[in-house]
């Protein structure tokens, strides 16, 4: 379970973009977080995925309190999250071929054996052809690059997926394909999902539960989520 409690975060301590926000994600649950541009929902997603340290608040992952963020967080805690960002161009090192991009977390973990097969398997899941795997980011389209970024997020079999406006730049068919790939993975692994976006129709269709940003900020303690049967 992910429990974000009274989180305040931002890029300037005097003007935090996230103020006193609480959110809970049950294991295996898919939560959609809706909100207008610039409301701070992406920052909250970054806090939840341990890449942004909040100014204050507590964060429990499966009951264990998070004490460190970014590099300082323990490896196992970091890699429990697969993160997909809004802009694939910004989220991909321009020097890496797609196959290296996807395999990078495996290599960082020192798991070289079987990496290649794992990349090929994931490429199939997200709909990338073998030929595309040999290309660099500037040689593929946004949609193809985002598929690779999703494959990278899945490569370490995370228990949680955090999707920050994953489909905002993509056309309808690519959106549906990526969401289907995420859901396939969740069905098989039972991973939980926090997806952030501004498309109500999409999030309602995708998630077990959608919450609006204003609900998180107005209620000091958000009403506990109804006990839905989780996907696991």
């Amino acid at each position: 379970m992910l429990e974000l409690h009274r989180i305040t975060a931002g890029y300037d301590r005097r003007a935090p973009v996230v103020r006193d926000v609480s959110l809970t994600v049950e294991p295996g649950e898919a939560v959609g977080l809706l909100g207008p541009s610039g409301c701070g929902k992406s920052t909250l997603a970054r806090v939840a995925s341990l890449v942004h340290r909040p100014d204050s608040g507590t964060y429990l992952i499966d009951g264990e309190s998070v004490r460190a963020w970014r590099h300082r967080a323990p490896r196992e805690q970091r890699t429990a999250f697969g993160v997909v960002f809004q802009q694939p161009r910004q989220a991909a090192d321009p020097r890496l071929r797609l196959t290296d991009l996807i395999a990078e977390p495996l290599r960082a973990a020192g798991r070289r054996t079987g990496a290649e097969e794992r990349v090929v398997e994931l490429a199939g899941r997200v709909g990338l052809s073998a030929e595309l795997l040999g290309r660099r980011p500037h040689e593929v389209s946004d949609g193809q690059l985002q598929r690779a970024c999703l494959a990278r997020a899945l490569v370490l079999r995370p228990r949680w997926l955090i999707c920050d406006e994953m489909t905002a730049m993509l056309d309808a068919s690519t959106t549906a394909a990526l969401v289907a790939a995420v859901e396939d993975y969740r069905r098989e692994s039972g991973a939980g999902l926090l997806t952030v976006g501004h498309d109500r129709t999409l999030l309602n269709r995708w998630c077990d539960r959608t919450v609006h940003w204003t609900e998180l900020t107005q209620a000091e303690n958000p009403s506990p989520p109804k006990n839905k049967p989780s996907g696991a």
Binding site: A172, S173, T174, D199, T201, W206
Partner: peptide, 14 residues
């Protein structure tokens, strides 16, 4: 196929 991929329709990719 593009229209059918919309979340308010079939939500299935091409």
């Amino acid at each position: 196929g593009l229209l059918d991929a919309l979340p308010e329709r079939a939500f299935t990719p091409i």
